[in-house]
Amino acid sequence: MKREGVLYIISAPSGAGKTTLCKEIIDIFPHLRHSVSYTTRQPRAGEVHGKDYYFISMDEFRSMVDKGEFAEWAEVHGNCYGTSIRTLEECRITGIDLILDIDIQGARQLKERYEGGVYIFILPPSYEELRRRLNGRSSDSDEVISRRIDAAAGEIRESRWYDYIIVNDQFSRAVEELKSVVVAERCRTFRVLETVTERFDMG
């Protein structure tokens, strides 16, 4: 069926598990893809340029900002992240559903600029569990972890304006809940009305 791609915007405090959830849900839906963002941070172990992120210099990032090439961008924990307008438009036109794993600043920018996006917030079960997960990464210093925990309180307060909240307590249950959101949003009347009108006499 002919339709535009759906934009799923997913945010969470660092360590809540949104990246793992996004990867899992993309494996379930063949027409759902992960939006590859641009970032100035250094790659973590195992991350691949062009697959996980486009890793670019601060000068390159600033040049893209000046040219208006980002649909949203933000500085988070000292690093810059941005989503290309071109990426969003290509997927919308071709009917490819897209997941954006972005922070709250970026989500707010998108909410102001784009209609029809689906906003999903992933919560950890508790602050204690969030700290345990961050410590388990073994990739951040104690100072960085403390900064992320402090930031989490403000980020969690922002969850009230998102369309959906999923608590990532049991991973399998969180996957099922996220899967349900994707399925339901694909069936929204305004997304499919034009297509079904072409098939049936809706007058």
Rank of each mutant, 00 (worst) to 15 (best):
M1Q: 03
R3P: 00
G5W: 07
Y8G: 07
Y8Q: 08
Y8L: 10
P13D: 00
G17I: 02
E24G: 02
I26E: 06
P30F: 08
R33A: 12
S37I: 12
R41D: 01
Q42N: 11
R44I: 11
A45C: 10
G46P: 07
G50H: 06
D52G: 07
Y53W: 09
Y53Q: 12
D59R: 11
M64E: 04
V65S: 05
D66Y: 13
K67H: 06
G68C: 00
G68Y: 00
F70Y: 14
W73F: 15
V76K: 05
H77R: 11
C80H: 09
G82R: 01
T87I: 10
E89S: 04
I96V: 14
D97L: 14
D97R: 15
D101P: 07
A107G: 11
E112A: 15
E115D: 11
G117M: 00
Y127E: 13
Y127S: 13
E129F: 10
E129G: 13
L130R: 05
R131N: 12
R131H: 12
S139D: 06
E143G: 01
V144W: 06
I145W: 05
R147M: 04
I149R: 01
G154I: 04
S159C: 01
D163L: 05
Q170P: 00
S172D: 08
A174F: 02
V175T: 04
E176C: 07
S180A: 12
V181D: 00
R191F: 03
V192Y: 04
L193C: 00
E194V: 03
R199D: 02
G203F: 12
